[in-house]
């Protein structure tokens, strides 16, 4: 089956990102396809490469990046939600006159159309959080 995934909550505060990650891993292990993982609302905070969690805890952001590299996952961060919350890639930083960017490897910033498209293309869109 082809899954679309929506993550609506940020890391650590809420379980949504952890559960989504475990779901994606389990689905891939069973031979399913992950069409896209879309990060919305505070979920965009899962994409900051500047998180430094305690060493004895899981690194949620790094875990997503590694899974993306391993399985060529499409991790998409909503641009409107990201801009509100200070998440940006190099080109967005430049366009908005900011002196830094903070998007972790494997994530890309794009529009909400990518979420709708995931809903259209996937057999199931599974929502985590909110």
């Amino acid at each position: 089956m082809k899954f679309g995934i929506l993550v609506n909550e940020g890391p650590y505060t809420h379980q949504a990102s952890d559960t989504a990650y475990q779901f994606v891993k389990a689905a891939l292990a069973k031979g399913h396809e992950i069409y896209r993982v879309f990060f919305y609302h505070d979920g965009v905070n899962n994409a900051t490469r500047l998180t430094v969690p305690p060493q004895d805890d899981r690194n949620i952001v790094k875990r997503w990046s590694e899974l993306a590299a391993q399985h060529k996952l499409d991790l998409v961060v909503c641009i409107a939600a990201a801009q509100r919350r200070g998440l940006m890639d190099k080109s967005e930083a430049k366009r908005n006159g900011k002196d830094a960017d903070n998007i972790a490897p494997g994530f890309r910033i794009s529009g909400l159309g990518q979420l709708i498209e995931a809903g259209i293309q996937a057999d199931r869109l599974v929502v985590f959080g909110a």
């Binding site: 919305y40 609302h41 409107a80 529009g111 909400l112 159309g113 979420l115 709708i116 498209e117 809903g119």
Partner: peptide, 19 residues
């Protein structure tokens, strides 16, 4: 919370997809 506003933003963008 921001959920209502950001939900409405999805609806408006999604409208262009003629679903």
């Amino acid at each position: 919370t921001i959920y209502a506003l950001e939900s409405l933003e999805v609806v408006l963008i999604g409208a262009a997809f003629e679903q």
